[in-house]
């Protein structure tokens, strides 16, 4: 029930993207289209370039070639502030200002919408209230962020990202430090965010939760996308072998036939 995006938007496109460091290409020739309302999960082994790809989409890493179109516009032709109206990012381990309260943190999400003559509009207030409600953190609004548990804190960060009210939301390993209950919590929330009309792209290290919660799985290896599509269609023994060099069985979840990866024990 996060604030719905008011008009349809084209989501996010990545066109022939190459990125990396001098002499060391990290991301090569990536093509992506993630429409509005979809959740895409980027998976792959450590060092496969998935974080660099996400950073390039967030305008934090300048690609060597190609383009990223957010909401139809090339993000490298926009200013930082204009991009912040279209793309929001939750980094993997963000650092909050000292002693900030939950409400204070979520208010920062409104920063791209504020200015000298518009410091705290009704729209800001509404967006913050909705973001708190959507993430179930309204009760925590007056608490200090650093005194909350990891699961609560992650929901507060998500609230900040939602308050930014962007058509595209990027999440870098949003569940990496959470226990199973909170992982499910956060990923359910991600589905709700997408249902409100936003495009969500997240990096996940866990193939199982990616398969369960993403509409589109983007499997990367050595900087290239090796498979892309709905999890039910692309997750198989061969993909797991290619990504992780791992012998595994693929089971189907009893409820929805979602693929479940079970690594085989050696020997």
């Amino acid at each position: 029930m996060t604030t719905p995006m008011t008009d349809a938007h084209p989501g996010l496109q990545v066109r022939g993207l190459h990125a990396g460091y001098p002499g060391r290409p990290v991301v090569q020739d990536v093509e992506l289209t993630v429409p509005a309302g979809h959740v895409a999960a980027i998976v792959g082994p450590n060092g496969c370039g998935k974080s660099t790809l996400l950073r390039a989409i967030a305008r934090l890493h300048r690609p060597t070639a190609g383009a990223v179109l957010a909401d139809g516009a090339d993000i490298w032709k926009l200013t930082q502030r204009q991009v912040a109206h279209r793309v929001a990012l939750l980094p993997q381990s963000p650092r909050a200002p000292e002693a900030v309260t939950v409400a204070g943190l979520v208010r920062y999400g409104r920063h791209p919408h504020q200015g000298l003559l518009r410091q705290w509009s009704r729209e800001d207030e509404r967006a913050v209230r909705d973001a708190l409600a959507a993430t179930g953190t309204t009760e925590l609004a007056g608490e200090r962020l650093d005194r909350l548990s990891g699961g609560q804190r992650q929901r507060c960060w998500l609230a900040m990202v939602l308050a930014q009210h962007t058509p595209v939301v990027l999440l870098d390993e949003p569940t990496s430090a959470l226990d199973l209950g909170h992982v499910v919590d956060v990923l359910e929330l991600v589905r709700e965010v997408a249902a409100s009309g936003r495009t969500v792209i997240m990096v996940l290290h866990d193939l199982a939760s990616a398969a369960r919660y993403a509409d589109t799985l983007i499997a990367m290896k050595d900087g290239r996308v090796v498979a892309q599509g709905p999890p039910k269609e692309i997750v198989d023994e061969a993909l797991v072998k290619e990504l992780y060099d791992l012998e595994a069985d693929i089971l189907r979840a009893p409820g929805d036939a979602c693929p479940v990866v079970v690594p085989r024990a050696h020997g």
Binding site: A58, L60, V87
Partner: peptide, 23 residues
Amino acid sequence: LAVGHRLQLLRFDDDTAACLGVD
């Protein structure tokens, strides 16, 4: 005074601050 207002955002990590629209 104007710069100080924006410097608040530096209390975040760089990536977060940049994605909140700070150059």
